[in-house]
Design a protein around this nucleic acid. Structure first.
Lengths: 342, 342
DNA sequence: GTACGGTCTGTGAGCGTGAACAAGAAGTAC
DNA sequence: GTACTTCTTGTTCACGCTCACAGACCGTAC
């Protein structure tokens, strides 16, 4: 009946305008901080906004400005510590840059799946996408679609054709390996990550190059899937080889499984075997024994990636930018000097 | 200068319509699966869509339908295993329900912060919100704002005034405690989570009630902040008390720190002290020794929460629904029979 | 007095889509 | 043949906002 039943629907700009006794355009100007609005007019508008609890309709704004204020994140397994931390860093940075964050997680690794996820985000109207998917397949898939919307990858490697932020895995692995060699070990075994992951490749490359540079022979690589379980299984095999005195694991979770297996096999750590991990997850300092590892700051990784993306969306920044973040060796008790045994 | 430079801007529905020789409304009908479209017309439209690589403008659609197809997730520390897994489950479920997911993570715990996060999501036009924030303060804050947009909480406790999905923490804690009592321990010590968390409260309640029901005396509670570090510190204190023979930890990470501290103090596990955790994180089976713990399925939690939210958005479902998911005790080597010592 | 520049505000159009309505074509029943 | 229903398509409008433009007002300079 009455035209005043304003509670029934969300207030719109016109309602605010009427209440403040101005035109909708003036309300818009106040909202967007446009110049040339008289202070008392501005105050009346703001008061009306507060009174009605008015909130601008983002769809209407997006329709006319063609900007959704939303960035997308494609992530592979956001259950893992690394991806989860990066997502966290990305969200933080996006918020302070005034963007919303929409996520799409991958269920499988094939490039079609990446394609689908990015398409989904595009359909939603995101202005740019961060891909947390350090698989080779993913990165190459991403490179193809970077035409329609800016894409930034966070991961590893440098063969990507999109801007990228990554930890210097190779240098980190080299530092870990050199540390073990410096302790007197004749060589260092490697428990690598799954093939197809850039991080696996880079860490393995850092390890191998360091051994070669030192004139040490590189033993056969054992591979896991990042999980503690796979580290345990590899550990059982490594424990059978009396020559093994030092192992560099591609991540901390596998190192945990490895420690467990070596312990069960009666090997003392670091007395018999030294172990070094990668990541420095929060728990690493409380493993038995505390794990020497390579620290990488996932949150920083995410923030930097988002920074790059924001630049790309704004049209600033170079297309092939590649930010490399250094990793730091953290010494703990799981690594010790080589001791002659038996 | 030609009007045919179609590459310059994204194609819109009218472009598809012109190419297919129909009106834009027919294109709309095809897109939305409306009835009464002749098969060959439909095919022509679909062909035109493919040829132009047309994608509907989601802002325009949202403007007219008043539906953004987006759900929001408020999360506290998505770096932790639990929240990260729930987020993953939520995203999966949202995708299959046809929704996008937008995240907002909290930097601090106060209810103003929760309010802000939810406001942010509302400004973006989300149709509903899942709050992963098992703090008492958060839940009460959420209850207030559930008026404007449907909200579902995932966490613990039952005092909430919004629909909620949670693990039966109390029963899980009771099972863990009973298990230790059954092993012959006279009582069970408790390393609790931070106060203010519903999960801390519920797990502590389950522990306490079980002890009381068994006629055992409940020792003073030690509290941590969920981290391995805090578990380690509590472990150092507990190790000083020769009466301690069994400890129930409110999560696995603290249990890890506790194991470390007890090990350093020369206590054997489970010989001297039995330890039980909560969560069953992937690593728990590879602790030294493998950890007896209470398994909860975070992914399932997230999926169920999203299911509830979708119902709420659709107007189905009861306002005060509370889904309780059971937790399961997983026996490993860290718990064993009480042995008289010294 | 007129002219001009700056400040402030309002009007109208249009963004791309879905919904309501209208209208033509085709088939069925009498 | 007409009347009626069902299928199929098109036209017009509205969603809520920003942008371009126009106009009103004020002060100052000539």
């Amino acid at each position: 009946m009455g035209t005043d039943s304003a509670e029934l629907r969300q207030p719109v700009m016109a309602d605010v305008a009427k209440l403040a006794g101005v035109s909708h355009q003036t309300v818009s100007r106040v909202l967007n901080g446009a110049p040339h609005v008289r202070p008392d007019t501005r105050d009346r508008v703001l008061a009306a906004i507060r009174e009605l609890d008015y909130r601008p309709n983002s769809a209407a704004r997006a329709l006319v400005t063609k900007r959704s204020q939303t960035l997308g994140v494609v992530s592979f397994d956001s259950t893992l510590y690394g991806p989860a931390s990066m997502l966290d860093g990305i969200e933080q940075a996006a918020r302070s840059a005034g963007y919303f964050v929409s996520v799409a997680s991958l269920r499988s690794l094939d490039s079609r799946s990446v394609q689908e996820a990015v398409d989904r985000l595009r359909d939603q109207g995101v202005e740019g996408v961060v891909v947390i998917a350090p698989q080779i397949s993913a990165v190459s898939a991403v490179a193809k679609l970077s035409s329609s919307v800016p894409v930034v990858a966070v991961g590893s490697g440098n063969q990507a054709r999109v801007p990228m932020v990554s930890v210097d895995n190779q240098a980190g692995a080299a530092a870990a390996t050199r540390h073990l060699l410096d302790l007197g070990h004749r060589t260092v075994h490697h428990l690598g990550g799954p093939s197809g992951w850039l991080e696996s490749q880079d860490r393995q490359a850092g390890w191998r190059q360091t051994l070669e540079a030192a004139g040490a022979q590189a033993p056969e690589v054992h591979s896991g899937d990042w999980s503690a379980r796979s580290g345990y299984q590899a550990g059982l095999r490594l424990a059978e080889d009396p020559e093994v005195s030092a192992v560099f694991c591609a991540n901390d979770h596998m190192a945990l499984g490895l420690l467990r297996a070596l312990h069960e096999a009666g090997r003392s750590i670091p007395g018999d075997i030294s172990v070094v991990g990668f990541d420095d997850i929060h728990e690493a300092a409380y493993f038995t024994p505390p794990l020497t590892t390579v620290r990488q700051d996932f949150g920083e990784l995410g923030r930097r990636a988002l920074g790059l993306l924001v630049d790309a969306v704004a049209g600033v920044g170079h297309a092939r930018e590649h930010v490399l973040i250094s990793a730091e060796l953290v010494l703990r008790r799981s690594s010790g000097p080589f001791a002659t045994r038996r």
